[in-house]
Each structure stands twice: as C-alpha cells, then as structure tokens.
Design a binder for these strands. Sequence first.
DNA 1: AGCCTGACTCGGA
DNA 2: CTCCGAGCCAGGC
Length: 115
Amino acid sequence: MPRVSERAAGTARSHAAIYAVVRRIPRGRVATYGQVAREARLPGHARLVGYALAQGGPPGLPWHRVLNARGTVSVRSEPGGEDVQRARLEGEGVVFSASGRVDLARHGWRPRTRT
DNA sequence: AGCCTGACTCGGA
DNA sequence: CTCCGAGCCAGGC
C-alpha cells in the first residue's frame, strides 16, 4: 500500500471490512450501522461505520441500505441527503411508515440464514 | 497533547 | 413513546 501511515492502515482495513459488508446487503433490504459493524468483526463500532460511509466508500456501494438502530434514516450534515437515501430505498421496494421508519423485521437484512 | 464534533447505540428516567 | 447521559473511534484545530 502506497504512503499510508500505520494508523491509517489499520483504519483502512476497518473501512474495507465495513465496505465489504455493506456491499453484501441485498437490494430491497436494509441493515443498521451496529449490525454492519458486527458483521465486519467490529462490534461496538457502529459510529465507525457511519464515519466510513461519510467519507464515501467505493463506487456503487449501496450505502443507502444502512439505517440506524431505530430503523430511520440518520440525519446528515448535507441537507436533502436523507431524502435521497429514502427515495433510493423506496425505489428498491423498501416501505417507510408514516413516522418515517422501516420495519427492520420485514426489510432487515439477515446475513445468517435463520429460519 | 487536549478539546470538540460526528451518517451510532444502549440503558435508564 | 421520547429525552439524557455515557461509551465508542477517528479527524480537524
């Protein structure tokens, strides 16, 4: 890896793991930051997930499929961004309730095949 | 080095 | 159900 600090290399690895997990989220499903962190072997680092996504991951990354634990679109610094995320999700068939929440039990991503 | 902020989460009131 | 405080890590000043 070219010119990357040791500390940066560590974070880069975490980010890579996070992006890899987000990329696995199927179309029409959503995952929470905490869930992504856990799947990326980074339990408790939900905030790091949001941070990684905020920095902008690789092209084509389905970042819009990541919601907070409440099942709502987290507010971001950039105005209107939340609306974009919601629109993209609705375009994939994800339904938002009147209160702007997604039923995680219905649209939640379950990486582990659970019956 | 310290301090503040941020696409988070959880437990308690 | 909502609101608060504490814990978490990374980055900019």
